[in-house]
Write a protein that binds this DNA or RNA. Sequence first.
DNA 1: AGCACGCCGACT
DNA 2: GTCGGCGTGCTC
Length: 808
Amino acid sequence: MVLSILNTEQPVSLIAEVALLSPPFVTLSYSLPKVFVPEFWKVGQRVVLPLGSGVRIGVLLALKPQTEITNNSQTKDIVLKDLIWSLDKKSFFSESYLRVLIQLSHRLFLPIGQILASVLPIGLRSNQLKLCVFNGQKPKKYTLKELRFFDEETYRKLAELWASGQGGIIERNINTLENELCELCVDPPWAVRPSAKRQIALLELLWENGALNRKIIQDKLGAEANESLKRLSELGFVKVRPAQGEEAEADEIQKIWEKVPLNEEVSAFELTNAQQEVVDKLKDSLDTHQRSSHLLHGITGSGKTVVYLELLKHCLAQGRSVILLAPEVALAIKLKNDLQKRFPQQKIILSHGYQTPTLRESIFRQVSEAQEALVIIGTRSSLFLPLKNPGLIILDEEHDASFKQDEGLVYQAKELAYAIVQEYNAMLLLGSATPDIKSFQATKQGRLTLHSLPERVGGGTLPQVELVDIRHLTPTDGILAKPSQEALLETINKGEQAVILLNRRGYAPLIYCMQCSEPIKCPHCDIALTYHKARERVVCHYCGYNYAFPAPCPTCKSLNFVPFGEGTEKLEESLSGILPPDVKILRLDRDNARRAGRMEEILAAFARKEAQVLVGTQMLSKGHHFPDVTLAIVADADLGLNLPDYRATERSFQLFVQSAGRAGRGSKAGKVLIQTRNLNHYCWDYVKSTDFSGFFEVELQKRKRMKYPPFTNLALIRLSFPVEWKEGYKAMELFAEIYKKEAETLDVAVLGPAPAPLSMLRGRRRYNCLLKAQNWQHIRRIFQVGLQSNPFKDKIRMHLDLDPVNMM
DNA sequence: AGCACGCCGACT
DNA sequence: GTCGGCGTGCTC
Ligand SMILES: [Zn+2]
Ligand SMILES: [Zn+2]
């Protein structure tokens, strides 16, 4: 079919720029093998290339006329090698997609190859891939390395077979029979030879029965079917994927939600006037096909999700894809389930960072090959899926810090989403009940368009917020003050539910040794160990260090300990003492929701009213709605308010308002109790009246006065060195000099380096250097200078955190 | 990451 | 004298 990709006589004069997908991740120039016509090579293909004496995989970034290269003095003397092969006949990445990632690579100071490699599941960039061709009957496999050293004639022969569809690239070696599900990818008629009876029989079988595993296929068609199957899968008619493994598991997790009815905000078919107005405006904006960015500020229970749904439908109808991002996996799963219930026909792809490589590979491939518009729901890593035509990106709970967090690639979901939207002329929609102050500020400056949903669906009122003074509480009193206990009992007696938020997991956050007069600390971090009762261990929440407890004090060997403070585990235990014995209490935190699906089980059980009280960490305050919850208690509000962070108040405000959102929906009135020792804090007036704009105004004034974002750009250079390296302290002074000197010429305020609040972590001393500047480039510049003039590269690690999520 | 090249110790 | 340890450095 594709014989036209083979070259006959044309001279090949283009040069390929290829980004390597394995170290050294550089972008190198290659000439093109004359066996293929120049038009065969397309930007975005994954290509096989020679490097040194081996072979690698890279992505073709550009094709340039030879003259451009030869005029460059750097590359003039290098004799270019030919590319070897392509893994794709068509382009795998679109030029738009590559442009977005190249932009990201500039921002992160990383080579584009490294970005592409971290984005591509391993199976799609593995050096172990093989070329499989059929010459006559028997299939033959060649490793990529073998391809490099074939003589001209064999190479051309293979290229001919491959070009005519007599072979393909084997993406992965697949496991055993039952575990492999075969799925038809193409509707009839199928382009196979009419004489290929077995292949046709197999295609028919799958057409009739849907997806089948290989065991069943073998039983029905005999062992000979294997050969046909292999062939068909290499031709792309049939896809073989793991049957049980992760997909089955993911489905199981989805099923947990099935018995839980949709919330009224999501299930409503009639839009409220406010919703309709917002939807109309945003639809109009989508219709223009112009890039645009919006902030949807809808109070808790105002039905933001329905607005998303309407826009999603509209965007799909335009033939453009939609990405809907949630701040964490559990929310994405829930959201997917809710949406699927509303649109049973629509295929919705769930994508998040906890999926296994195999599943991620299959999703990546599916997205890259899709011709139709797709709906993707996931966490921030979903932004890297190679969608052809994204039209709408929604970030739900846009204020959430997890959109900024940095594991692996340090990118900010909001910025990346913005870049994508710019590239594709799409729409960015940020949604929250408690927007980030920066987003709010951006609406004032016209960079975001503000839309509001000021009322709850069904006219429900916002809950009443009350402060509970806990200054008088002694350690023996437990963590809940009398008014909180009474309110809790009252709620339960009415047959309603309550949630209690305590942002501290474990049993006791501090174990005090009476002999040493010191808490037990982690030997690697400057942090007290937390006691986990069920695990019978003390644990460092920062590095994971732990040992069985009780055990003699590591310093004095005494066994005289007093636990201090209360975590969720203890709270759950002490609640059962306070509440009537028949009251069921559930707990939700990272410790008991570790197993896949466990979190969903707990949330679903609570939603089904199998318990009256749910105790949890902040994962509980994020977006989950329980209609019968009428009381929310924030057990220790000061935990967040007292953090050494300029955003402590903003974060706390968001937490309080979100928690308030858990209480009371529809007809039932809700109540929120906030326990604090800080009764005079300026935020309470605004929390009590849920006066967002009032709070934002005051907070903005404060930020302006203190020269904090959004009125300046703030960054942290994080420096660390091994504790045992005593010269480190001196070296920090050296860096103070370097930064100060460099900052003189640029308009950057430098503070430090000074010991970080978390002064030791994993055996390394930590220092922070705070930078403030109007221009990000200047901040980057100072960091670069420090990086280059680091005389102790093996000892000192440094890392630039732009707009840090935490200052610790 | 590979893979060569290279420079030392302990084996036939 | 040769085999093989893995330290350093390069790859269009
Ligand atoms: Zn530790
Ligand atoms: Zn002690």
